[in-house]
């Protein structure tokens, strides 16, 4: 997120271009690249998906396990989101312990999914207070060309939608080779759409390329969904050491409903 990797020349050029509402690839500042979605990209996973947004590619997979419920939610199943910024996907990613960005990415995906309530966690209980299903979503970028948080969220949600339960044998153990047709208990109405705004100077940009993202000063990620027929913001996080003004926040609140409808329309054909 820091502008450390971009040269001052790139940053100044992009700033001037954004002020004139221009981008190198000819898009409007709030326009997304082409989005492509594919399911079942790894057949040992209980569900999986691959998203492409322009040249950005992310794979997400779901594994199901049987475990104990958390003490503070004895009547609910568990959800875990994790991810790894593989050095495969970018010259910027390195092996070793996760840096802040690698910690933040799955946490943002987790909150967008959890807070919108798309998963009926209570239906994941096998034996009350003792045995529940644990949903583990793992996210791996394959090629980072910007907008990784939104791509990761799209991929994770798609993977959840394609997930089916494996069979439980008589001892209550999972037989991963026997898959059922039973889908996860997901809401029909509610499904989160991620939207991350990037800011450079006074301009707000959506779906940046890696060069654009690395030149921006700050970003703010939203998870948005429909709940009881109302548009709701479920999660939000500003990341970066430059503030947003009240006016900019109010401006984003105007853009969010329009982009939500537009992205939903784009994704409809895949589901």
């Amino acid at each position: 997120m820091s502008s450390m990797e971009s040269s001052n020349l790139t940053i100044e050029t992009l700033k001037r271009m954004f002020e004139k509402e221009k981008r190198f690839d000819g898009r409007n500042l709030l326009e997304h690249r082409k989005i492509d979605l594919e399911f079942n990209v790894s057949n040992k996973a209980e569900g999986s998906a691959r998203i492409r947004i322009g040249k950005t590619e992310v794979i997400a997979g779901v594994k199901l396990q049987v475990g104990e419920p958390y003490p503070d939610s004895p009547d609910k199943g568990n959800l875990m989101v994790s991810g790894d910024l593989l050095p495969l996907a970018s010259p910027r990613f390195e092996m070793g312990p996760p840096d802040f960005y690698a910690i933040e990415l799955p946490r943002l995906v987790d909150r967008a999914i959890r807070e919108c309530g798309m998963i009926d966690m209570e239906k994941l209980v096998i034996t009350p207070k003792e045995k529940v299903w644990t949903i583990i979503i793992d996210i791996y970028p394959i090629n980072d060309d910007g907008n990784l948080i939104d791509a990761a969220t799209f991929a994770a949600v798609a993977a959840l939608k394609s997930t089916t339960f494996p069979e439980l044998n008589e001892e209550g153990k999972i037989d991963y080779d026997k898959k059922t047709n039973k889908k996860l208990p997901l809401s029909k109405e509610t499904s989160p759409i991620p939207l991350t705004f990037y800011k450079l100077g006074n301009s707000l940009v959506l779906d940046p390329t890696r060069e654009e993202a690395e030149s921006c000063e700050v970003r703010i990620s939203f998870g948005i969904s429909i709940w009881n027929k109302q548009l709701m913001i479920n999660s939000c996080q500003k990341s970066g050491a430059v503030p947003f003004s009240q006016e900019e926040i109010e401006n984003m609140m105007q853009i969010i409903p329009k982009k939500f409808d537009e992205l939903n329309e784009k994704l409809k054909k895949f589901f």
Binding site: C116, L231, I233, N234, S235, C236, Q237
Partner: peptide, 10 residues
């Protein structure tokens, strides 16, 4: 600082 968890109309 801007963070949010929950459900709020824009």
């Amino acid at each position: 600082l801007i963070q949010l968890d929950g459900k709020i109309q824009p």
